[in-house]
Design a protein around this nucleic acid. Sequence first.
DNA 1: AAATATTTTTAGATTTGTCTAAAAATAAAA
DNA 2: TTTTATTTTTAGACAAATCTAAAAATATTT
Lengths: 218, 218
Amino acid sequence: MLTSTEENYLKAILALENEGAVSTNALADRMETKASSVTDMIRKLAEKELVDYQKYKGVSLTVSGKDAALRIVRKHRLWEVFLVEKLNFGWDEVHEIAEQLEHIQSVQLTDRLEEFLGFPKFDPHGDPIPDKNGTIVRRKKACLLNEMELTIPATVVGVNDSSPAFLQFLDRQGVQLGDTLILLEKYEFDDSMLVETKNGTINFSHAVVTNICVEPKQ
Amino acid sequence: MLTSTEENYLKAILALENEGAVSTNALADRMETKASSVTDMIRKLAEKELVDYQKYKGVSLTVSGKDAALRIVRKHRLWEVFLVEKLNFGWDEVHEIAEQLEHIQSVQLTDRLEEFLGFPKFDPHGDPIPDKNGTIVRRKKACLLNEMELTIPATVVGVNDSSPAFLQFLDRQGVQLGDTLILLEKYEFDDSMLVETKNGTINFSHAVVTNICVEPKQ
DNA sequence: AAATATTTTTAGATTTGTCTAAAAATAAAA
DNA sequence: TTTTATTTTTAGACAAATCTAAAAATATTT
């Protein structure tokens, strides 16, 4: 059995890991702790064979470590769906609560929750929900809004930044998952872009268009 | 902010407290820990003004301690309702999971869950659910099954023992909340009793009839 | 009331996750 | 290739919650 802290480390390593070892400092940053604490924890996780670790070489998840991490992500995202779909929370309000709920230990609970929610494949931010076996649905044609060609309609399928500030900004602009956006113009000087939304034509900064994931319509 | 352990202590004190101080040993028993650990924790809770404590005199909850304890009980029981009503768990399966869920910190979550469940007043074992202010609905006419008069129909409104073993036993006998039971005979020699149930007339031991709470019908 | 038994508290140790400060290893720059 | 800078690890300390063993207080018997 893992402690909540251990689970949070695994989740952080999963998030930082893209075929490659994760550095101690990168982990310390993400966990908002000190490098020395990270070293200590890594050695514990290595002892439990959840990560591969060699001094000064960074860490990476083992198969069973990745498995454990995916189970936590699965729970986190299912609970987010529950909070939004059933309890009418906003997509900007659910992260913190799901951060707690993800540590509840009961496979049966997770599976029944999934069933109760109708086996959702994505959470309220468009992130994919791993199934019972840790398998994740991959979006084939998805890209960032700024990578779209001009005038081609695109459906919003996710956000790269799930911070309340960004999500609340999107709420204000009337942009939500499932909406259709059309890129009309790109301005070189500040990388901002003109976008057609259901609320009208709006100029979005670089930070905005690089944090919205879209798929070309149909 | 309280730790889960502190919350569990408060809950245990509330459960043991009936106008009177709770002894160190009684708490140690209930918490499945040692008396010395209890002393340490009590002093910490006293420092936070959640309990009144004098060496060798036992503890009792302060107003704010009782408040905190009731909030935890409220969450525990609301989650039990959720698990049974929405996720189709049996009443014998929910305690352990609710024991974890009760420590999730979010007043908004609790209140929305309550609303989602339709403001239930009792949990799946018939225990009352404190409202937002800690107020509990009291059953006026409730008593234990063995205290009923012979031949008077009574409705099952709760159980005193929520252990899976007892609840599964009741399932086997077809006894559940809302059922009508009629006490037909009392046998002095072993305090067992003959009871009419929807599954027929059954002889229940003393342990059974003193753990079923009933109300005279209408 | 004195002796014995029980309950409760203290003292000192352990584990978990963290920290600071210093040392060691690696990476980058001159 | 030295020197300097950065990253990472070690050493030692701390707070939380627990334990064992021993001491102190209270309760019960005789």
